[in-house]
């Protein structure tokens, strides 16, 4: 019982600041409410609208495109980087490399978005470098161009999330029995064969965690997108998080925004639960 008592403060906080907002969001999603006046019960109307309004499908499609940049690329690159660093882990360069790659994770996302906004602007550093090396022809406002805005936002995501994945995967690799590598090398395995046969199976669980965290970051993205493009140009980088914000605070349709938020939670679960199953299956 005393054990319970120690948990109570945390439980109360959890109830107040996690469960209550969650339940309130679900509750609001059944109302037509402007956030101030009295709300009106509308049943499932908001959900019908979420699933029939084409304006709301675009952001969901965009968030799946972001999934490639926020999740697939950082995890793939993370595996490669981590295995490279793992080989030189004991050297001084190894720890410097880890620190440098992890650094973006320490910078607040809003600051990252602002900095990248400057770097990627038409007069920004990225275009200056391109012009110096003779690629001035492709210089453009990367975040203001319909073709490049979403990949540019994705690039910021890669920059932020690569460090997280690398460090986590590196930790996973550190607990793999070195004898396995020794045995592989005796059998004449190169870097690739070693990665495929020893490393990847050994860090399956860590990959699962990376995929889960980065997939949530992609599907529930808000800060990076809001600060760097705000969803523009047009609606080319609008993601569900931005749409929820606009519906709730600009359109003042709290009910519809809540319904969209609940749908987003379900979408996130639908994406990460299979990942969890796949990577955990033969863990125990």
């Amino acid at each position: 019982m005393a054990g319970w008592a120690f948990v109570v403060p945390a439980l109360v906080m959890y109830g107040l600041f996690v469960l209550q907002p969650l339940f309130l969001t679900i509750q609001y999603s059944f109302y037509d409410w402007d956030g101030v006046g009295p709300g009106e019960w509308v049943g499932l109307d908001n959900y019908v609208r979420v699933f029939t309004d084409p304006d709301l499908l675009g952001p969901i499609f965009n968030s799946f495109r972001l999934l490639i940049f926020f999740s697939v690329i950082p995890v793939t690159l993370g595996v490669v980087t981590a295995s490279l660093i793992h080989r030189i882990a004991s050297t001084r360069f190894g720890s410097v490399a880890t620190t440098v790659i992890f650094l973006p994770q320490v910078i607040p996302l809003v600051a990252s978005g602002i900095i990248w906004g400057w770097l990627l602007a038409r007069p920004g550093v990225v275009n200056q470098i391109l012009e110096t090396i003779g690629l001035g022809g492709i210089a453009r406002a990367w975040l203001g161009d319909f073709g490049t805005a979403l990949p540019a936002v994705g690039m910021i995501g890669i920059w932020v999330l690569l460090g997280f994945c690398t460090v986590l995967l590196q930790t996973g690799m550190a607990k793999i029995n070195p004898e396995l590598y020794e045995a592989a090398r005796l059998d004449g395995a190169g870097w690739w064969a070693e990665l495929r046969a020893v490393t990847l199976p050994g860090i399956k669980y860590e990959i699962g965690v990376c995929l889960t965290v980065t997939a949530i970051a992609a599907l529930a993205a808000f800060d990076i997108v809001y600060v760097s493009t705000g969803g523009g140009p047009g609606r080319s980088t609008q993601v569900p998080g931005i749409k929820i914000y606009i519906e709730a605070f600009l359109q003042r349709r709290v009910g519809l925004a809540s319904a969209l938020a609940v749908a987003l939670v379900v979408l996130v679960l639908a994406v990460i639960l299979p990942v969890q199953r796949l990577t955990r299956e033969d863990q125990t």
Partner: peptide
């Protein structure tokens, strides 16, 4: 607290 909040309609 959670129940009370959940029972009252928004804006009440």
């Amino acid at each position: 607290a959670v129940l009370a909040a959940a029972c009252a309609g928004p804006g009440a």
